[in-house]
Nucleic acid binder design. Structure first.
Lengths: 199, 199, 199, 199
DNA sequence: GATGAATGAGATTTCATTCAT
DNA sequence: AATGAATGAAATCTCATTCAT
């Protein structure tokens, strides 16, 4: 990567970061290309040098960040520990991303999670599920988890719990201080792994 | 309700039902008011006789159907049984709505669940959570649930699991035959109440 | 005119009067047929029993009231007095119409005076000018007025002065108490007949 | 003003001039934004690059041209001559604007003169009156005009005469050759300053 | 690479008018 | 006569995208 590309890369980042802030603030549909350009401090035509369309900006945001998360999921899944600990690790990664970059999480939760449109563009979207599922299946294979567990549904239920917590924070409906995030993380593992019912 | 208003009510329904189909097919933003009118077999101007805007059509769809669901949640919550059974009942209601009306669930999951825009319009959105929470709190008070459970987070986690299963069906990522729905229902209760970990 | 027509006539009046108020309040273009109907307390469809269109309502308002004014102009013109006194009489009629019915004058000044559209529909519009002109020509023939006066231009100038005073009241730019109206009337005759310049 | 902004200014003018022609031909309300763009030979979207709305186009036309006229009024008012001569100068400016640009006068007379809507937007509208009034007051102070003259009403009456002559030309009801305009100018000063009545 | 003027498809919404009841 | 549901033409304005400079 030479000096030129580094400068280019920097501008690309500028635009992506601006887009995250703008999408978080106004939502994807209500955000105009001009808003992003203004936030980035460039002319709006420049956006089209780096991205094919407004849509591609959103897809790029998702792809790059989701890819990072999934990579970290994989690290956790590859570590030598129990399935429960691995689920805890995944929960920690996902939930703490809220603290690290709330705008980014806002965009990913709000704009991407449910859009069949984007799902088509971003094949990687299923990768996170695959990692979680492999952990669940390990738990089953090891006899750590109950054998009547359906790994596919269990994966979605676990992920749903995580996503809903993020949603609660995005929508401002759940307390979201650092301590709250830590407690949420404990709760999601406690509930999903240990169940609500007193043993 | 006289003949006139019954006829009007019928037309209103016609438009709402058409809107559900169109929104499910193309998504809210890609659906034009003219598409809804065409699907309903009326002039597009008539839509504005019954609703203030395209937005209000979506809000109405959500409000009326969510209200029905919440009403049924309440019936379950009021029945004389264990908290676990009540959660099972709520899961059944929500998940089986997929079988009853997939288009409607598609719209509610895809367009409404994360939109802060609609959340503002539809105050009732929190009512469902409130019912679930009351059940969780009952489980705690009765000693049925573990005392270290945070009822707020547990509520969101449980609801997230349900919503994610619906999302999986909406996106065509999860098997969704009647038997699958029944198994999903069992799983969500088994996981959330009993936990994944073998006792 | 039998009982039926009297009832009809009454409703017609109701609509016309309502239209004057609505047009005065919001302007012709911004006034909806429904506004007029609501103000009149009837269904908006009924308007189309009495008038061919919204446009015809305005034309009717103008025609009927302008006709009345012109009739009174004619009475003045036919009275046995000087041209100056006749002009004073005409000024009095026109300017005092403001006191009698400000809404009506507002509509006539604002919507009709300059509209070539309406001028086409309302042939009577030139009748008022004709009466004034006949008075000016009488003044010339009698030697009362200076012989270098061009009666056509003089007529328009005189009428313009009157119309502008009404405009000032309509726009709320001129004081419009009863005494102000009386003084305006004196001024317009003093200026037009006697001139500004000290003799 | 560099090359870029000069080119822009030119385009802005192009649109404004086209708008004047279109408004003169069809009237403001009947003119579509697309008509203006077509007349100017640009895409209709460009209009919104230069003006916020169709309304603002009209307001701009009025403001800029009225401002020019008022500036010339002020020059006349500042010249060292009698009040009568000054009124003659003002009449000349206003009436000859008809010869210079009939379309522009048509628009200003027809669309702006009576619209309270525009009056709100264009504060400068009263400036012309203020200049005339100052001349009248000078005439009074100098003893040139009769002391019973009310300067406010006299101003409106004088302006009304001028505006009505323009209206007559706009509506095609008054002869409007160059000689007619010159005679009209003489008449309005003769009548307003000297009065109709033979001395 | 950078700019922002220019384009034009397209969408919502309004509202005069019609007409079945 | 009276109603108001229904129609649909029409118009403004937005904004993603292109492209000359």
């Amino acid at each position: 990567m030479n000096a030129r590309s580094a400068a280019q890369e920097e501008k690309r980042r500028l635009i992506l970061d601006a887009a995250v802030r703008v999408f978080a603030r106004r939502g994807y549909h209500a955000s105009r290309v001009g808003d992003i350009a203004e936030e980035a401090g460039v002319a709006h035509g420049l956006l089209y040098h780096y991205f094919r369309s407004k849509d591609e900006v959103l897809a790029t945001i998702f792809r790059e960040n989701w890819g990072t998360l999934v990579g970290r999921f994989r690290d956790v899944a590859a570590s030598p520990t129990t399935a429960e600990e691995k689920l805890r690790g995944i929960a920690k990664i996902l939930l703490r991303s809220w603290i690290r970059d709330p705008d980014l999480v806002t965009v990913m939760i709000r704009e991407v999670a449910r859009s069949p449109h984007l799902q088509a563009q971003v094949a990687e979207i299923g990768d996170g599920f695959a990692v979680i599922r492999s952990v669940v299946e390990q738990g089953l294979a090891d006899g750590e988890f109950r054998e009547d567990v359906d790994p596919l549904f269990a994966t979605w239920i676990f992920y749903g719990g995580l996503e809903e917590l993020l949603t609660g924070w995005v929508l401002g409906q759940l307390p979201h201080g650092d301590a709250d995030v830590a407690r949420a993380e404990e709760m999601v593992v406690a509930v999903v792994c240990g169940g609500l019912v007193r043993r």
